[in-house]
Amino acid sequence: MHIEDIRLYCLSKSTQVVEELPFGPDTLVFKIGGKIFLLISLDQYDEIRFNVKCDPDYAEELRERYSQTVFPGYHMNKKHWNTVYVGRELQEKELKALIDHSYELVVQSLPRSVRNNINK
């Protein structure tokens, strides 16, 4: 997966997904309902990595199982965020599943009134 593949996949989750650059021109952020579910640096050349939200127990499991690919979230709350490297131990389908997990966690954390208005 390339950065553009990740970008398009995030945007495909819902027409209400927003992409922003709140931390400067080099960090692309994807939000749903005003909350971040993925961050990716745009100045990556050799190895692509992104940060996604994750259930704390599942985060630990992933870090143990994929010790060369999944790490505590860089510059994020290490309990709830993972940094995931593309092109190592996980295939595209598995990378998308981690994006889906992050997206769903964020959607479930939104107030019901906001959550009910999110379309696919």
Rank of each mutant, 00 (worst) to 15 (best):
I48S: 12
W81Y: 07
K31D: 10
P56M: 14
V106N: 09
H2V: 10
V86I: 13
Q108N: 11
F50G: 15
D57G: 10
D55W: 04
P22M: 06
E94A: 14
N119D: 13
E20C: 00
M76C: 08
K120C: 07
D5N: 14
M1E: 01
M1Q: 03
Q68K: 13
K31W: 05
I3R: 13
I99C: 12
H2Y: 02
L11H: 03
K13G: 03
V114E: 14
L98V: 08
R88D: 05
V17Y: 04
V18D: 10
S102K: 13
I32K: 08
R112Q: 06
N77E: 05
F50R: 15
S102I: 07
S14P: 08
I36R: 01
L28G: 07
K13V: 05
Q44D: 14
K13M: 11
S67E: 13
G24F: 05
Q108I: 00
P22A: 09
G24H: 08
V84H: 09
C54Y: 05
L62S: 08
K120H: 07
F37W: 10
K96L: 14
E89C: 08
R65P: 02
K78T: 13
D5M: 13
A59G: 13
I6H: 11
I118E: 15
R63G: 04
T15C: 08
F30W: 13
P25E: 12
K13D: 02
K79V: 14
S113M: 00
L105A: 05
R112I: 00
V107Y: 01
Y103M: 10
A59L: 08
A59V: 07
L98Q: 12
R49D: 05
E64H: 14
N117C: 03
L11M: 14
H101C: 06
N116M: 02
Y45F: 06
L8Y: 00
V29K: 08
E92V: 04
G34E: 01
Y103A: 04
Y85A: 05
H101P: 12
F37A: 05
V52D: 02
L8K: 10
L95F: 11
T69Q: 12
K96A: 11
Q16E: 15
P25R: 04
F37H: 07
G73N: 12
Y103V: 11
D57I: 11
Q91K: 15
M1N: 05
N82Q: 03
V106K: 09
F23W: 09
F30T: 15
D100K: 09
N117Y: 03
L11A: 06
E60I: 12
S102A: 13
G87R: 04
E19M: 06
G34Y: 02
V114W: 03
D57P: 00
K79C: 03
E94M: 09
N51S: 15
V106T: 15
E61T: 15
A97P: 04
F71E: 06
Q16H: 12
Q44S: 15
N116K: 10
S102D: 01
I99D: 09
I48P: 08
G33K: 12
T27N: 10
E47H: 04
A97N: 04
G87A: 07
R7V: 11
P22F: 05
Y74D: 04
Y103L: 10
E19C: 09
L28D: 03
I99L: 14
H101M: 12
E20G: 09
K35S: 03
V29F: 02
Y85E: 03
L11G: 06
L38G: 00
D26C: 11
Y9A: 06
K79D: 00
S67F: 07
E61P: 00
L39F: 13
V17F: 02
